[in-house]
Design a protein around this nucleic acid. Structure first.
Lengths: 205, 205
DNA sequence: GTTTGCGGCATACCGCCGGTATGGAGCACA
DNA sequence: TGTGCTCCATACCGGCGGTATGCCGCAAAC
């Protein structure tokens, strides 16, 4: 790692590092205090720079939020892809994906920045676009795989995937806010599984 | 209606009227521009008063939002109760309730204030409490009725109701944002119905 | 009818925060 | 060694949530 990045000049190294520090600081503060209650001065302080640096790298508070959003989503998606593309049949991989996604939703950063504040801060349309490239895209792909494998009967993929995605994130929110997360997690998984099994319908295997 | 309210003094009539005007103005502006982009001066102007009046009736912006929230929810709940307590068996009433709720979710005020910004502005815990007294309470009660009538097999009511509620509101959001709401509405209803039918499971009738 | 109290609201003002304008420091390239 | 451009700091502005203060008029007390 010491001699890496030798391709680019030292100057852009510094710049990248500053930008990353700003994003990290933003993720932390947005997660802890929410978008509205987080001041840009605080974000800059957390990255040990001033607002001038922040406005050099980002056009404004919204753009900073979107950068934080992308950072969280990228990390999460990378992990989920591993789970969903593992060994086993389509059904097993899907169920494994459900478990994996619920786990992801338990992380405070994902829950607050991506699920809760994302649609409000970015606007629902833009949030929807962004989601297509990340975790929702995975849910949709998994559902398509299930249909292609004949595990569940054909249905409007886009709509079903959206509704399922909503059910999943809602479930994860329940778990995170429950007094007994262990128990709540089991119940949520059972509920989602029951829904999927119900869709298995006519001739599953 | 002319001689109504004769019990209370003219002064409190004025006060109530002012308060209602503020809430109405808040509902309109929060719906159109969202919480963050709505200034209290604008709300006051919309009610043809000043910020002094606003702060006399409400402790701050959050309290004003909650008043708007309650106003929207009250109107909606009243309508939904009519639908759910209509004639017919438990299953029919439930399906009718689903259709009714999806319709409710199509109203911009309900969608933006209650579903989208509510959890963010009020905080998820407080939003959850408030919801118990309104539309979520209805979903839960309907689900309980279904179980009691033996239409679907027993399951953890609270969790299932929450997940179902999430699926419903997500579905409504899809419809509202779809290029062809007619078609999207049909698909969402079909999806939710299929989920519920899947739960009907073992031996309903 | 006069006085007194107080609820209902307007006006003026403060501090914080998002955003902008400006300038300086240092690397790259000629 | 100039020259330009990237990267960032400093200083400042305007808007908005929130507060302090005071007036106006109804209503009860006498």
């Amino acid at each position: 790692m010491t001699t890496a990045r030798s391709e680019q000049s030292r100057r852009v190294d510094y710049s990248e590092s500053t930008r990353n520090a700003l994003v990290d600081s933003a993720v932390t503060l947005f997660t802890d205090n929410g978008y509205a209650a987080t001041s840009l001065d605080a974000v800059a302080r957390g990255a040990r720079v001033t607002k001038g640096a922040l406005y050099h790298h980002f056009s404004g508070k919204q753009a900073l939020f979107e950068a934080a959003f992308d950072a969280v989503e990228s990390a999460v998606s990378a992990r989920l892809v591993q789970v969903v593309t593992g060994p086993g049949g389509a059904w097993e991989r899907a169920m494994e994906g459900v478990r994996g996604y619920v786990n992801v939703c338990l992380e405070p950063s994902y829950q607050r920045i991506v699920i809760h504040e994302g649609p409000v801060v970015m606007g629902w349309d833009r949030w929807r676009e962004a989601e297509d490239r990340f975790s929702f895209g995975l849910v949709r792909a998994t559902l398509e795989a299930l249909i292609e494998a004949g595990e569940i009967e054909a249905l409007p993929v886009e709509t079903t995937a959206r509704v399922l995605f909503g059910a999943l994130s809602t479930g994860a929110t329940i778990i995170a806010g429950a007094p007994d997360p262990e128990r709540a997690g089991a119940e949520v998984l059972l509920t989602i599984e029951r829904v999927l099994v119900g869709m298995r319908a006519a001739g599953p295997r």
